[in-house]
Design a protein around this nucleic acid. Structure first.
Lengths: 135, 135
DNA sequence: TTTTCACTTGCAAAGATTTGCGTCTGTGCG
DNA sequence: CGCACAGACGCAAATCTTTGCAAGTGAAAA
């Protein structure tokens, strides 16, 4: 009734999805995850994958990002968080460490009392090369 | 050339969309924009609205943001850029000035030679109130 | 052990966004 | 003026993601 603790409730889908995402460094689409998870749970539906991913994201275990590829991609959140800068011209991707972003998030927290939980930031722009080309 | 105001369908949808977005401070969905633009161009299709918005976004005149409401929202980019911090618990929205974000973007530019063009950032997290509730 | 109840899942359907393709239009050029 | 080309549009169809509803399941309560 009044206890604030949630019941994690063993969901086979969640475990299987984390299993699939564990060894992957690259971000996977819902389709790819569904295909991979089927090896463990042949009958699992794509809808369940979506719902499971949303659940895991809410729990901070998975990141959901739109990298501008047409389909959203998901990745397991690890200790070594990273973020991406994507060049809208050449499609090049620059990876930056979390420390650099975390410092700024901390500043936001101090100034606005808002604790950012976004764990994978994607910023679009122009890489050094394309900026040169553009002038 | 001559008049640009009454061409039945040959004129670009871009102008009509900017017209619709101009007075709005709030972000509109593709559906809402489509409905509004129809008053000027009754025959315009939703697909054209999407393509036009993408074009305008590429030109830096419109921002595209996923505020977690189920549908992406679009807004006209003005001189007074702003960004949002959205509480994933209560849905509350904190608006922050661009200056605060721009400083960080400038730092990224110095460090990585990457010029961010994202003009409306949305970060999810917990507001001060909900952080307190969560403890 | 049985009951309870919130959470999970599937299926079908809805909603949102993108893409393929053929047509039409405005622009620059000869 | 007439032509060629690139870009804009509409329509239909494909994708991607979410939602409504009914049924299944597990953990804690009774």
């Amino acid at each position: 009734m009044s206890q604030a603790a949630k019941t994690p409730r063993a969901s086979s889908a969640d475990a299987a999805i984390l299993q699939v995402l564990r060894p992957e460094l690259r971000h996977l689409t819902s389709k790819q995850i569904h295909t991979a998870v089927r090896k463990q749970l042949p009958a699992i539906s794509l809808v369940t994958v979506y719902r499971s991913l949303e659940r895991l994201a809410r729990a901070g275990q998975v990141s959901i990002s739109d990298m501008g590829t047409g389909a959203v991609v998901y990745a397991r959140v690890t200790e070594s968080l990273h973020h991406h800068l994507i060049c809208q011209d050449c499609g090049g991707i620059v990876t930056i460490e979390h420390a650099e972003v975390g410092r700024w998030f901390a500043a936001l927290s101090r100034r606005h009392g808002f604790k950012v939980t976004t764990n994978h930031l994607v910023l679009f722009g122009l890489c050094a090369g394309c900026q040169a080309t553009h002038r």
